[in-house]
């Protein structure tokens, strides 16, 4: 029980810090998407429930801070957290390259869900070409993180 509380506080703080930091940093005038990294990590390593709850937390935090509608980030990060463990189950051999590609694709999927939700339920936030560039940069920044995630030895 104590371990669960400790982990919740630790990962909660990590997620809050990353959400706040990503709102302050820009790379070539685009904001980063760092909060997806702990969500993916927790989902991948600790299972779907951990990924799901961290995804909901990070997404809700992003939605509240974004000043727009509540829901897009919660949906995308919740889903990613929930289904990240599938990669753990489906791939018998986990390589560095697979990790990098996974994080790259997951960042793109996260951005795509947020963009689609905003476009459908609020207004198209920016032209698709600008969105594609921004997502690509965010995914490239995040992808090296995939290289350091390892599967636990059986």
């Amino acid at each position: 029980m104590r371990k669960i509380v400790k982990n919740t506080i630790l990962w909660g703080s990590v997620i809050i810090c990353l959400v706040v930091i990503q709102s302050l940093l820009t790379v070539t005038s685009f904001k980063l998407n760092l909060a997806i990294l702990p969500v993916f990590y927790l989902g991948f390593k600790k299972g779907d429930l951990a990924g799901f709850s961290s995804g909901i937390g990070a997404g809700l935090l992003e939605d509240i801070l974004s000043g727009s509608i509540i829901g897009p980030s919660t949906l995308s990060k919740g889903m990613i957290g929930l289904f990240s463990h599938l990669l753990y189950e489906k791939f018998f051999v986990w390589t560095y390259l697979l990790g990098i590609v996974s994080v790259f694709l997951i960042t793109i999927v996260d951005e795509l869900i947020i963009y689609a939700s905003m476009t459908i339920f609020s207004h198209q936030p920016l032209p698709f070409s600008s969105f594609a560039t921004a997502s690509l940069i965010k995914a490239l920044v995040n992808s090296p993180f995939g290289g350091i995630i390892k599967k636990d030895e059986e």
Partner: peptide
């Protein structure tokens, strides 16, 4: 469990967003 959680999340967030799209953001 995974699919059930996904469906709950999808329904909750979608209804939240539909509600907000007709009114003001929460």
């Amino acid at each position: 469990r995974r699919n059930l959680l996904a469906i709950i999340l999808l329904l909750t967030t979608l209804s939240l967003m539909v509600f907000q799209s007709t009114r003001q953001p929460f």
